[in-house]
Amino acid sequence: MIRNWNLSTIGLNSIILKDKMIIVSNFSNSNFYNIDFSGSSILFSLFEYSTFNNCIFNNTTIKYTIFAGSTFSDCSFIDSNIVNSNFNGTNTHNSSFNDSDLYYSTFTSSKLTNTTFVECNLKKTDFYKSERNNVSFKYSNYEEAFFNRDR
């Protein structure tokens, strides 16, 4: 278990963090390259303004976690439970969130390129002011997501 760790600005390369519990930890402004987080639970943690390259988050549980301002390249969040988490201002390309529950997570002001949200639960997922280029929401309940705000 990784709990109450403050590792901001760390650089991690080719590390396996499978099936770990990461709770109330700070990894902001960090670089993650080729990291396997699959099966992990990431709760109440801070990863803002970080870079993720070729990272695997499959079968993870991510709750109340902040990724705002981060960049994701060639990352996979398949079959995950990503609830109440903040992806605002993120830049994501060549990545997949397929088969995931993204309930109440936010992608406001994000840039999404070549990224798929196939068969996802998008209830209350917020994509307001996001730029989407070659993004697929196939078989997802995207009508329950927010793309506009009626003000």
Partner: peptide, 12 residues
């Protein structure tokens, strides 16, 4: 909804 930081709100 999710938590945030003041910096993220200023930026995004």
């Amino acid at each position: 909804g999710p938590p945030s930081t003041i910096k993220a709100e200023k930026d995004f």
